[in-house]
Simulated assay, not measured.
Amino acid sequence: MNNMDPKTAARQIKLMGFDVDGTLTDGGLYFGADGEVMKRFSVLDGQGLRLLIDHGVKVVWITARSSAIVEKRARDLGIYQLVQGCKTKLQVFDDIRQSLALSWEECGFFGDDWPDYPVIKHVGLAATTTHSPECMKAVANWTNQRPVGNGAVRELCDFILSCKPDYKNPWECD
């Protein structure tokens, strides 16, 4: 179990990693008549990711599947690095972490299933979903309330930013 307080962990985040299917999407795969796979992304989640990026957090997506749709969405949002077709997420995330000279405490990851588990166990901000296996929930220190693919990523981004001492919410009501 990650014993770090989630607010303390979020305050330190400089690198935030995300799985794609089941966090940024609802986990469904939609097949068209010609066999193409379609995915639905939330504009709320995209705005949250842009806010993180604009506040200096490096955002990476690491996914076991490969999709031109994911590549386009990542490019549109300015994602720092996208790794698709990845079977060893921990190694890839660790390589990125080391290239940025960051400690594990300065990193977070949001994942929902077994391929994400090794990364979740190492990072300071270990985020998972309400539909994740119990062992993942046991090691996580943050779990979404909003639906995946429809605001869960935004919820996490807002949480991280709200913990940063120098962050001022541009939409805060007076």
Rank of each mutant, 00 (worst) to 15 (best):
118 P>V: 11
95 D>C: 13
115 P>D: 02
83 V>F: 06
82 L>G: 07
64 A>M: 06
51 L>V: 00
104 W>I: 05
66 S>D: 10
68 A>M: 08
111 G>D: 01
67 S>W: 08
84 Q>P: 14
88 T>Q: 11
94 D>L: 02
96 I>S: 07
71 E>F: 05
54 D>L: 00
56 G>D: 00
102 L>W: 10
118 P>T: 08
104 W>P: 09
73 R>Q: 10
121 K>S: 09
63 T>H: 05
120 I>R: 02
96 I>N: 14
104 W>A: 08
117 Y>P: 01
117 Y>E: 07
106 E>M: 14
97 R>I: 12
62 I>R: 01
117 Y>D: 00
108 G>N: 09
103 S>C: 12
115 P>Q: 11
100 L>G: 14
53 I>T: 08
85 G>A: 04
102 L>G: 09
55 H>N: 15
69 I>T: 02
61 W>T: 08
61 W>E: 07
80 Y>F: 15
51 L>S: 05
75 R>S: 06
107 C>H: 09
94 D>W: 07
104 W>V: 01
82 L>D: 02
56 G>M: 01
64 A>I: 02
100 L>P: 11
78 G>A: 05
88 T>L: 05
110 F>Y: 14
69 I>E: 04
63 T>R: 01
81 Q>M: 07
100 L>Y: 13
52 L>Q: 01
58 K>N: 03
57 V>N: 01
102 L>F: 13
80 Y>P: 06
118 P>Q: 09
75 R>I: 05
79 I>D: 06
112 D>Q: 00
93 F>D: 10
63 T>E: 03
62 I>D: 03
94 D>V: 07
103 S>W: 05
114 W>I: 10
113 D>Q: 09
105 E>M: 13
81 Q>P: 02
53 I>V: 05
101 A>S: 13
122 H>L: 12
112 D>K: 00
73 R>T: 06
85 G>M: 09
95 D>Q: 14
97 R>M: 07
120 I>K: 00
103 S>D: 15
96 I>Q: 15
114 W>P: 04
121 K>M: 13
66 S>T: 11
86 C>Q: 04
107 C>G: 12
115 P>V: 02
117 Y>G: 03
107 C>M: 11
60 V>I: 14
78 G>D: 04
92 V>W: 06
79 I>P: 06
117 Y>R: 00
59 V>G: 13
111 G>E: 01
63 T>S: 04
75 R>Q: 10
93 F>K: 10
80 Y>K: 01
118 P>A: 12
95 D>N: 13
74 A>C: 10
95 D>G: 07
76 D>C: 13
72 K>D: 12
120 I>V: 11
